[in-house]
Design a protein around this nucleic acid. Structure first.
Length: 495
RNA sequence: GAGCCGCUAGCUCAGUAGGUAGAGCAUCUGACUUUUAAUCAGAUGGUCGUUGGUUCGACUCCAACGCGGCUCACCA
């Protein structure tokens, strides 16, 4: 496909010449025994004189990232998964044959090097090559060494290039892995069992969102990619597992933005005999621990602004948050008609059928959410917008639920679970009515879930934490695409 | 879905009141056994995102389309 390009033709020609000389440009018999990191940790402290006594031979594999040629000798820089090291190739050390192989090397090729450590005149710990092998010829050139690869589209589409030449990118994904490992560790230590529940579901429940639809040929049935694992996880609590969690993908057929990818990773967990208040404490603990382990303290900066994660975090009810961040009054929020007028003043589209509770959350989203920079728990969500949450014992208009906001966006959502099967059935029926009234995202009726509740779900609290957003926060990334290796893009343009 | 911005060599970028394109790095040839974006001399490399229109002539002006980014809308 790239054969029209001169650079590619040159590289292919070099590979062909090697083959003609009996050298396989895709050799697979070189044993890589060490990493660049091992060399630095073994010899990082030794000076040139000490290293001269060192005859330890290392066998490294890596990609050629730079090349400085001096006629009968040269410096290469090779990169492996742990870092980079400079390799000194001298004709009198590697011999005629390997040196002529060296001359055919291109930046981007993957090579194997055997050699001993030494320090150059400028003091850099390097490897003096004794022998050299080409392990993989790269037909395509690497982006430029100084400016690297900055074209955002190429970075996302050809993530392998991005990872090769932009060290910060690989670092983000290592950090992402550490975040997930820490969470898994934290959960396991609190006696939670990690489980996997269906990604393909006959009914996409557990959240309000439009699903992706697929079809199973043999079963002759429509299936939905899950929008949440919630209802399955609670079935497991009914089954007696009591504490479960799952870190996995959800799929939502909705808009794409700097905060939204069609598939995204959530950690959902359920704990029997806990309440939503317990989970707020738990979440605060877990995230503080993550920040401490990943940032080495409580200092966190996002988009140039400090984020104060020192506990205890602020806790406000939805109404309090609205009052605090707008000029609306208690009376505006108490009376549905006045709330409606207030919403219009704020420029919110007011559908005639919209419920009072839904309107309140929309007002909150508009006036308060963007202001919640330091971690803040918001409670007192209206019952209408929370069909799976337990009603508050004192006030049935609200539920025992919270959402966690940081840097102006939602990071987690948790609540005491509704475990009264009759109440749950009524809520589903209410959702069905809203669906018929035109709300595409209203929840469907899940009869097996009702049956499970009839079997008895212990008092339980559950929560979902958006892992991508958490990683964005911890890596100071502006876009969700920067923390997902292969973000969803349109089909590549042909020309 | 709407608005704004971008798309020029492998990469990073210039460019012209419309006269068919330039730099650095990379590449190729030559010199060089301690460089750190090595250096020096020379050379190659482009259907200027696509398609159409205006024009004697379009990379440049106009339109449509494609892909990407940001903002807004929907959402987590």
């Amino acid at each position: 496909m790239e054969d029209g390009n001169e650079l590619v033709a040159q590289r292919r020609a070099k590979a062909a010449e090697m083959r003609a000389e009996g050298i396989n440009p895709f050799a697979n018999d070189f044993r890589v025994l060490h990493t660049t990191e091992e060399i630095f940790s073994a010899h990082g402290e030794e000076d040139a004189a000490a290293l001269e006594e060192c005859h330890t031979e290392y066998a490294l594999g890596g990609r050629v990232m730079a090349r400085r040629d001096f006629g009968k000798a040269a410096f290469l820089q090779i990169k492996d998964r742990k870092g980079r090291i400079q390799v000194f190739v001298a004709k009198n050390l590697v011999g005629e044959k390997d040196f002529s192989l060296y001359r055919k090397l291109d930046i981007g090729d993957i090579i194997g090097v055997r050699g001993t450590p030494f320090r150059t005149k400028t003091g850099e710990l390097s490897i003096q090559a004794l022998s050299l092998r080409l392990l993989t010829k790269a037909f395509l050139p690497l982006p430029e060494k100084w400016h690297g690869l900055t074209d955002v589209e190429t970075r996302y589409r050809q993530r392998y290039l991005d990872l090769m030449v932009n060290p910060d990118v690989a670092e983000i994904f290592r950090k992402r892995n550490r975040v997930i490992t820490c969470i898994r560790d934290f959960m396991t230590r609190h006696d939670f069992l990690e489980v996997e529940t269906p990604m393909m579901q006959p009914l996409a429940g557990g959240a309000t969102a439009r699903p992706f639809v697929t079809y199973h040929n043999t079963l002759k049935m429509e299936l939905f990619l899950r929008i949440a694992p919630e209802l399955y996880l609670k079935r497991l609590v009914v089954g007696g597992l009591e504490r479960v969690f799952e870190i996995n993908r959800n799929f939502r057929n909705e808009g794409i933005s700097v905060q939204h990818n069609p598939e995204f990773t959530m950690m959902e967990f359920y704990q029997a005999y806990a309440t939503y208040e317990d989970l707020m404490d738990f979440t605060e603990n877990m995230i503080c621990k993550l920040v401490a382990e990943l940032q080495g303290g409580r200092e966190l900066t996002y988009n140039g602004r400090p984020v104060n994660v020192t506990p205890p975090w602020k806790r406000l009810s939805l109404r309090e948050a609205i009052l605090l961040h707008s000029d609306l009054s208690e009376a505006d929020l108490a009376d549905p008609e006045r709330t409606r007028q207030a919403a219009r003043r704020l420029g919110i589209e007011v559908d005639s059928r919209i419920s009072h509770g839904k309107l309140l959350t929309e007002i909150f989203d508009t006036v308060a959410e963007p202001q919640l920079w330091d971690p803040t728990f918001i409670t007192g969500y209206p019952t209408e917008v929370s069909p799976l949450s337990r009603k508050n014992d004192q006030n049935p208009d609200i539920v025992d639920r919270f959402e966690l906001f940081v840097v102006g966006r939602e990071l987690a959502n948790g609540f005491s679970e509704l475990n009264d099967p009759d109440d749950q059935e009524q809520r589903f029926l209410q959702q069905l009515a809203e669906k018929e009234a035109g709300d595409e995202e209203a929840h469907g009726m899940d009869e097996d879930y009702i049956r499970a509740l009839q079997q008895g779900l212990p008092p339980t609290a559950g929560e979902g934490i958006g892992i991508d957003r958490l990683v964005m926060l911890l890596t100071d990334s502006a876009s969700i695409r920067d923390v997902i290796l292969f973000p969803q893009l349109r089909k590549e343009a042909k020309d």
